[in-house]
């Protein structure tokens, strides 16, 4: 592979270039067992207590989009990273990097969203930092967060990928691709008349209900950047089996489908901010679905596929027309068709 001598946008999109960067630069220099897990949160033991610790940065453009803003997004993203690790989110930090000239009124709306979302998720914003940079030296506002949560021992689901078996089913808690398409629509002013709203939401309650009422979740991850396809590819890399998903079974809203058709995107690769992928044994799947569907954020939960003995390491999609194709790791940003 040719080495790049400059950072490209593709280094930050969750695809192959970013994975190379993590492996060749970050892991090589920071390397330790906890980081090597590359999970959403690091699981740390302090005085024999298990803690989940995570961090995230938010550079979304535009700051306000249908269904949320950068403040809501920051809390949800952090809370979700802790929740999918089986932790109860407790404390988060919020650091702001603000461009000179940014309207205080807008900042106020964003801060209020941060506060409101934190209250809803029952987490406290306990520390923070503010930096202002010269005009043009950052784009309006960037947010960095960290989050800490307590892992309830009975809920610790890390490392359970070892007990994933062929036949286990893959569940998603609703329509995919909403966040990415809502932001794209807001940013590019396509003015699609079908409303597409971001699914940005804290999943702590939904996940808590599932973990509390069943003991059977074998894998859980929020499908953010890189979408469902990226999560499933990361999963197949960890298990000696393949994954088969069915196009017909994957919930996609009308608006997202229309935008994807028009722009040449594949919803499987589009970012979500309120979607979690779970792997559970088949015999438990109806119970898990029932629990999830009772929560408003899981009403459209569906089984989208299963773990299979065939094609180990690969995610295969059964298309609506009866064909099959591989769903590969994202390489570079998805680009629109030009003819």
């Amino acid at each position: 592979m040719r080495k790049e001598d400059k950072i490209l946008l593709s280094h930050g999109n969750g695809g192959r270039l970013m994975q190379d960067l993590i492996a060749d630069l970050f892991l090589k220099n920071f390397g330790n067992k906890k980081l090597e897990d590359q999970s959403d949160s690091a699981i740390l033991v302090i005085d024999s207590r298990e803690i989940a610790f995570t961090t995230d940065s938010f550079v979304i453009d535009p700051l306000f989009f249908p269904g949320g803003n950068i403040g809501k997004l920051a809390v949800c993203g952090t809370v979700n990273d802790l929740s999918v690790s089986g932790a109860e989110p407790m404390f988060i930090s919020v650091s702001l990097i603000i461009e000179e000239g940014f309207p205080i009124k807008e900042l106020e709306v964003i801060v209020k969203s941060l506060a409101e979302e934190a209250r809803k998720a029952n987490v406290e914003i306990v520390t923070g930092d503010t930096k202002v940079v010269n005009k043009g030296k950052c784009d309006k506002l960037f947010v960095n967060t960290a989050g800490i949560g307590r892992i309830r021992p009975e809920k610790n689901i890390t490392g359970r990928t070892q007990i994933i078996n062929p036949g286990d089913v893959i569940i998603v808690n609703g329509t995919i691709g909403d966040h990415g398409m809502a932001v794209m629509n807001a940013r590019e002013s396509f003015n699609f008349t079908t409303p597409v709203e971001s699914d940005c939401a804290c999943l702590d309650q939904l996940i808590h209900e599932v973990l509390e009422q069943t003991g059977s979740v074998r894998f859980m991850r929020d499908a953010t950047r890189g979408g469902v396809a990226t999560v499933l590819n990361e999963l197949t890399a960890k298990i000696p089996y393949g994954i088969e998903i069915e196009e017909d079974a994957i919930p996609v809203s009308r608006g997202v489908r229309a935008m994807c058709e028009l722009l040449g995107f594949d919803p499987l690769y589009i970012a979500n901010e309120g979607k979690v992928i779970l792997v559970v044994p088949e015999q438990e799947s109806s119970l898990v679905l029932e629990i999830m569907r009772r929560n408003i954020l899981g009403r459209e939960s569906s089984i989208i596929g299963r773990v299979v003995q065939d094609h180990p390491g690969k995610v295969v999609l059964k298309t609506t027309t009866g064909g099959k194709r591989i769903v590969d790791v994202l390489t570079g940003d998805q680009l629109p068709r030009i003819c």
């Binding site: 790049e4 400059k6 950072i7 490209l8 946008l9 593709s10 570079g332 940003d333 680009l335 629109p336 068709r337 030009i338």
Partner: peptide
């Protein structure tokens, strides 16, 4: 159009020159 951004020229690409 986005399709051209990563196409390699003889030494570099639009994506790299953007960087």
């Amino acid at each position: 159009y986005g399709d051209l951004i990563r196409v390699p020229g003889s030494v570099t690409s639009l994506e790299k020159e953007k960087a």
